[in-house]
Write a protein that binds this DNA or RNA. Structure first.
Lengths: 229, 229
DNA sequence: AAAAATATATGATATTTGTCATGTATTTCT
DNA sequence: AGAAATACATGACAAATATCATATATTTTT
């Protein structure tokens, strides 16, 4: 199995603040795992025994809403850490994590993380910074969800998907979600979402090929998001 | 000025994890301040030089949305700490804080907080726990905003106000917000909000006297929130 | 206390969004 | 390959919500 010290992935997460000894210690007790597309990493209410480090692939964090729909709160991709919140605050997880493509993840047991958190202030500051960033984002999302209409929210979701996954060689967003999943992310009925996708498509804002979506003009989509239509 | 060691307020916040020495040190450099209803404590984009500890009163955290409306994200009340996020992650604040009634706040300079954060793991764990709790809540709010309709969201806001401020002697929620403010919190037009308030009132779910609102049946409001109507 | 400004309320109407029905395309299973 | 299941698409309509107009109540100012 690979060694944490040499793993490039950690450079992108708060793990970068760990020193060599800590990395070696973690390396010796971490486990690695493959998660296939569609499989859950954990589910809402689970109690995590450690933190996941995403080496490859991506997953969606979802929450079952009271109306029975699955809402995608955010995506976690290569290089991200997952589960710190739950591990540090010692509470069950609030969201489910499901792979949106094949993933390779490392698992670092709770005790290792907590030792470093309590013993290495650089690491704890990094971790908190990450969580603060998530909180800021989440607050922004709340405001957008409350104040924007469905069309604006779809524009936001498209931009978020584009930011998170990037483009393939043809310029399509490098992730394939069902219409239902996108509807859940936007917070609308699947039929409404489908209609809006074709409206965007007709207006030349996007190009749709099956599940693949290409943003024709970032600027125009941004304008929709800002209510300039 | 009062001493932090003897301040009961700190018992309710992460400051409880501080030891006597730290408290004495903070006590010597903290400042106290009165903020009148309607006055801002800080504004979106400000760079905070420290953390606020709410000794008395409450404030709303708001964000200006792209459609020009002020959205109330949450309330901060007596005993809460404010600004940790911004101070620890060393970023400008994301939200404005405006007093909803007369407040008395203590101000603790950044360096003091950071020294304790880096030097006292018990404190840093407490702080992170607080922030994690906020994040969990914020994610929940996002989902509710996206998936619930306006009526359900109004029910949520009423319950939140009730939880946060409690009841006065007549059973009315102990805070007075304008219809516009409530509309901003719910994420709807002011006229729509007014209509729904009178609908709730007609149905006997709430009692309205000017700006004062009484929840007649928590259970019924909870049912509305859950879509059981 | 009167005038002005602001907040609340309500009707009429337009727009947005959701729901139901139904058909077609695509994927999955055997 | 064919059948079954699932996903996507679209029309028709209903319900929810926003907008505009206007009236009244309340608060603030003078």
């Amino acid at each position: 199995m690979g060694k944490c010290e040499q793993c490039i992935i950690r450079k992108f997460s708060s793990l970068r603040a760990l020193n060599k000894e800590e990395l070696i210690k973690i390396s010796s007790c971490k486990t690695s795992r493959i998660v296939k597309k569609g499989e859950p990493l954990f589910e809402e209410g689970d109690h995590l025994k450690g933190v996941f480090c995403i080496r490859e692939g991506a997953c969606k964090l979802t929450k079952l809403s009271s109306n029975g729909k699955n809402h995608i709160v955010k995506f976690i991709t290569k290089g991200d850490l997952l589960g710190q919140r739950s591990v540090i605050s010692d509470e069950s997880v609030n969201l489910s994590a499901v792979a949106v493509n094949d993933m390779e993840v490392c698992f670092i047991p709770r005790d290792e993380i907590m030792d470093s958190f309590r013993g290495n202030p650089d690491f704890s500051v990094e971790v908190v910074r990450d969580i603060c960033y998530d909180l800021k984002n989440s607050d922004d999302v709340s405001v957008n969800m409350a104040q924007k209409n469905v069309k604006q929210r779809l524009a936001d979701s498209l931009l978020y998907m584009h930011d998170t996954f990037g483009e393939d060689i043809d310029g399509f967003i490098k992730v394939q979600l069902s219409r239902e999943e996108i509807a859940g992310m936007v917070g609308t009925a699947t039929e409404s979402l489908i209609r809006m996708l074709s409206e965007f498509s007709k207006k030349g804002l996007i190009e749709v090929k099956g599940k693949r979506i290409k943003i024709s003009s970032i600027l125009k989509i941004q304008n929709v998001s800002d209510g300039i239509m």
